[in-house]
Design a protein around this nucleic acid. Structure first.
Lengths: 156, 156
DNA sequence: TTATAATAGTTAGTTTTCGAACTAATTATA
DNA sequence: TATAATTAGTTCGAAAACTAACTATTATAA
């Protein structure tokens, strides 16, 4: 049984408060940079495809972003309507669908990145960006830990 | 002119992706712990009052949470309807209002904390919580930096 | 082998947030 | 001092996320 002191509890609360504010600030910047072509979530999904480079299912994507399935359905529908992803039914399991990036999707991501990167550079100029990279492993570890704890609490 | 390498750009994107997922996970936990009495935002506002311990204006609160003013109006209205905060007009400047915690608000926060803390302890058990405290200064510095950059870009 | 349970994805309705535009009050300017 | 600009807070309508409940399909068990 882990005991957590009151000061540590407070630090954890402050940690998540900062997380919340940073998320809002980052999303607001993304909206400004990408509007009206892509939402931050759509951009995030495209980025995921760029990194993976193969077809995946909507449920997999929903899990990767810790997002409810209906939310992912909505995002993918928009991306499909814009021609940035292609959705096809699985032949083996007809419940499933596979989503893949289209050429237009790849191009749209590159264009979006070209719009976001300068803004990001400007907004982070003067800040020690290496510190963020240094902090990243802690965030990833925490995300994995909380993810696992949640799955466990939900009964696997 | 700061030059940011491609790997660093990627690390920054991953950083904000993790931020987004962590925020969702944390908010989901809060909803589970506080429902149906308080929303995560309402809890956040109460926590702010506990730390400050004096009356503040809605606009100040909106800035503190980097939240749009109409959002704060909505949150404060709900808290007022529940009797957890008291809102009074300023005598000096009749545009302004002052918001203060009520006794019931203080009690509600204590009760909420008593519900959230064990859940948090459980979900973070096995994780090096000190690492979060160590990371906190970086997050705060980044938040302040981005906040300042945004204000600057908006023309002060 | 049929009935039950589980899984993939969608639809519908609610909540929370936002931006734009509005009212009212104060401060700055001509 | 009259007028314009700014500031505080609200109302309204839209966007994006959620949960609950649904259909369709596949897997499991009696």
């Amino acid at each position: 049984m882990t005991v957590i002191s009151e000061e540590t509890t407070d630090a954890v609360f402050r940690f998540f408060t900062e997380i919340g504010i940073l998320d809002q600030l980052a999303k607001a910047e993304l909206v400004r940079a990408l509007w009206p072509d892509l939402s931050p979530s759509e951009f995030g999904v495209l980025t995921h495809f760029i990194r993976l480079d193969h077809a995946i299912t909507p449920t997999y994507l929903a899990r990767a972003f810790q997002m409810a399935k209906p939310s992912m359905t909505a995002i993918l529908s928009k991306l499909e309507r814009k021609g940035l992803v292609a959705i096809r039914a699985s032949a083996k399991d007809r419940r499933r669908k596979f989503v893949a990036l289209t050429g237009a999707g790849r191009a749209a991501h590159a264009e979006a990145l070209a719009r976001v990167a300068p803004l990001m550079t400007e907004r982070l100029s003067g800040f020690d960006v290496e510190a963020l990279a240094a902090v990243l492993p802690v965030l990833s570890a925490l995300r994995e830990h909380m993810d696992a704890a949640r799955n466990e609490a939900d009964g696997l």
